[in-house]
């Protein structure tokens, strides 16, 4: 059993190292800084600039979290402090279901509804033409995907607040919302941050659903209605076919390595900040 325990830790290290070594050729060939900040992506000429992909990933995840966070916080507060028992009982399986639906189904739904909606209704109001396969579509689909994750964690977080504390506030004549605002949210801020970080790292890595709706054009998106090309989609679309070109393969592995590093960093940072927050306030 000790062996298995060590194996789990080793697996993490092995994944990290092997991705690193696979990405090493491209990092030797090009300056790391150039790789990260150049917008030139011409694999056949040997230009590998990851900026469009990094920015795409970033924008799509950002939109997703901006949409998802208020919905999730409001809904989980509602479920925790306001909803009756029967509503809660009804909602739990709904959240479970939403989180169980595979990404590909979200992708299908996105192409069927969100993409035409953006192309025909929303985009014409702002820009001359848009195919609908856009940053916005990716963000919306991704938001719908991470909402159940956020809600299920946040409901847990809110539930862990001692009832005495809420009673203390209510017994002083605070309204429910005052209690939520000043006690519940304050007390659970670290939990909300942790949930957000987890949802963000899920959003960064999500492949299929985003790939199906975001257009996959190598460019730096300038508006919500531009197509974009996130890192996971880049890997999914090209990996496996590009083995004939070692530097291309290495470049794709570099993007996998980037995703890996982002996830590790996010986990590390969120742990660290959580510990710091708890140390500082000890609430």
């Amino acid at each position: 059993m000790l062996g298995i325990a060590i194996f789990t830790i080793l697996l993490l290290i092995i994944i990290g190292l092997s991705l690193f070594f696979k990405a090493l050729p491209i990092m030797r060939e090009k300056n790391l800084w150039v790789l990260l900040t150049s917008a030139q992506w011409k694999p056949f000429k040997g230009d590998f600039g990851f900026l469009p992909f990094i920015l795409s990933t970033f924008y799509v995840s950002l939109i997703a979290i901006i949409i998802a966070l208020p919905f999730s916080i409001l809904t989980s507060i509602y479920l925790n402090s306001y909803a009756s028992k029967s509503v809660k009982k009804f909602f739990e399986p709904v959240i479970d279901l939403l989180s169980g639906i595979p990404p590909i189904i979200y992708g299908v739904w996105g192409t069927l509804t969100i993409v035409p909606l953006i192309a025909n209704k929303i985009a014409p109001k702002f820009v001359e033409f848009s195919t609908g396969y856009t940053v916005l579509a990716g963000g919306v689909v991704l938001a719908v995907m991470i909402i159940p994750l956020l809600i299920s964690i946040m409901v847990e977080v809110f539930r862990s607040i001692p009832k005495e504390m809420i009673d203390a506030s209510l017994s002083m004549g605070a309204t429910k919302w005052q209690t939520v605002k000043k006690v519940i949210l304050r007390k659970s801020i670290s939990g909300i941050i942790a949930a957000t970080v987890l949802a963000l790292s899920r959003a960064f890595g999500e492949t299929m659903a985003v790939l199906m709706v975001c257009g996959n054009i190598t460019q730096i998106p300038h508006s919500l209605f531009d197509a974009c090309y996130p890192l996971p989609a880049l890997i999914a679309n090209n990996y496996g076919e590009m083995l004939s070109m070692p530097s291309y393969e290495s470049a794709l592995m570099f993007s996998a390595f980037l995703l890996f590093i982002i996830v590790v960093l996010f986990n590390g940072i969120s742990r660290f900040t959580l510990i710091q927050i708890e140390k500082r306030y000890q609430f």
Binding site: E164, M165, D167, S171, G173, T175, K182, F283
Partner: peptide, 24 residues
């Protein structure tokens, strides 16, 4: 005014705890 069995300070400073009621 209710005083509970176990003291239950709200997750804020001493000052804000006392100021909580007047503020709300």
């Amino acid at each position: 005014g209710l005083l509970a069995q176990r003291p239950c300070p709200l997750p804020m400073s001493i000052f804000d705890n006392v100021a909580y009621g007047p503020r709300i």
